[in-house]
Simulated assay, not measured.
Amino acid sequence: MTGDQPRTRTSAWRPSVSGITEVLHAHFTDHAYPAHTHDTWALMILDNGSVDFAVDRHRHGAAGGGAVVLLPPGVPHDGKTVNPSGFRKRVLYLDTRVLPERWAGAAVDGPVHGDGLLRHRIRRLHGALADPGDEFEAESRLALVRERLLLHLGAVHVRNPEREPGRMAAALRELLDSRISTGVSLNEAASILHAHPTHLIRCFKQTYGLPPHAYLTGRRIDRARRLLLAGRRPAEVATMVGFYDQAHLNRHFTRHLSVPPARYAALHDRGATA
């Protein structure tokens, strides 16, 4: 019976990614937020449904499928469902290290953005945040989301990679190769190489054809393959090559090779028997 179905479903967690204080996924059917404020930015995408909300006493509406909503810190806002089916939303709460509070006024003037590229980047960021172990990818995706948001707020203009992208890309690849097992954060890499995070990402992709987090994952998979065929157990291999745990290794290994690590390791046994 429909009356037995929960009218609200939520999940929330705090990821291990600097600048993101909370991730919230929710389905509301009859909920109404009272007016309130946050000390963070709230970056929301709707998966379906519609929501009516006010920011600084000015009402707005957003519908799933295209809109991105950015609510600034310290500014009162509310929100309510528009129809009986409610709405499904995904929210990232970003601290002021990601977006300076001085841009709050621009966000109040235009909190809703019909930007397909921004929405796509946010969706990919949520995907990277769904499981532990992909923090480097999440940091990279957050940097590109931040750049796009600052563009909407009038804070920056997107720049093409500066001169000598190959030199910068090679330096980053060398750093990643030296940190396959231990890993490196995007901000740490940017500090070591004296470059802006998004500049690093663009130089690397322009030079090598894939983003730095994908390159690092591929190098870890290569090392895992050799260890598995040498007789190492998948759980042991996962930590040796820098994955968070065996589940993290399984997910990426299967995506790369269409076979889980344990089955790939069995090739070693069959080869030895033959």
Rank of each mutant, 00 (worst) to 15 (best):
W41V: 03
D245H: 04
L94Y: 06
V259E: 04
V184Y: 03
F28Y: 15
V145L: 06
T198F: 01
Y244N: 11
R255F: 00
A155V: 11
V98Q: 03
L117K: 05
H256W: 07
D134F: 10
E236R: 04
T254N: 03
P211F: 07
G116S: 11
D134E: 12
G127E: 11
D47C: 09
G218Q: 03
G3C: 14
P6Y: 12
C203I: 04
A143C: 08
L99N: 05
E101W: 06
A32I: 12
Y208H: 05
L153C: 07
V241L: 03
P100Q: 04
A32Y: 10
T254F: 01
A230E: 06
R226P: 00
R159P: 00
T10Q: 15
M240D: 05
R14K: 13
T239W: 04
L125Q: 05
N83Y: 10
D109L: 13
T2Q: 14
D39I: 14
L216C: 03
E137H: 03
V158W: 02
R124P: 05
Q206L: 12
V23L: 07
G133K: 01
A262H: 08
G271S: 01
T29W: 07
Q5Y: 14
E147M: 06
D47V: 10
Q246R: 07
A128Y: 09
P76I: 10
D39T: 15
H113K: 07
A143V: 13
V108H: 07
D115W: 01
T40I: 02
D134L: 09
E147D: 09
I180G: 01
G105Q: 07
R167Y: 08
A143G: 08
R124K: 12
A230H: 04
T217P: 00
G65W: 06
T8R: 14
Y33S: 14
R163D: 10
R233H: 08
S16W: 08
V23F: 10
R59P: 15
Q206I: 07
H31K: 12
R202Y: 05
T81Y: 10
R167N: 13
L24R: 15
F53Y: 14
L153K: 01
H77P: 06
A67V: 06
H31I: 10
V241K: 01
P212S: 04
A138M: 05
A26I: 15
F87D: 09
R223V: 05
R251F: 02
A42Y: 01
T37V: 14
R223A: 07
R159C: 04
G79A: 13
R163G: 13
G74I: 15
D115I: 05
R179K: 10
R163E: 12
D30Y: 11
R121A: 11
H27N: 11
E101A: 15
V51N: 08
T8I: 13
L142P: 03
S178A: 13
I20P: 05
R88Y: 12
Y264I: 00
V68T: 12
V259W: 02
T37W: 10
H268A: 05
A138Y: 08
T198R: 04
L227D: 00
Y33F: 11
H60D: 09
A54L: 09
I122V: 15
W13T: 09
W103L: 14
R57Q: 14
V158T: 06
I221M: 02
R225C: 01
R14G: 08
R121K: 13
E174F: 06
E174L: 09
G209Q: 03
V237T: 00
R255A: 09
H25P: 06
A130V: 09
F87V: 14
A106L: 08
H213Y: 14
L70Q: 02
R121I: 01
D245A: 05
A169D: 02
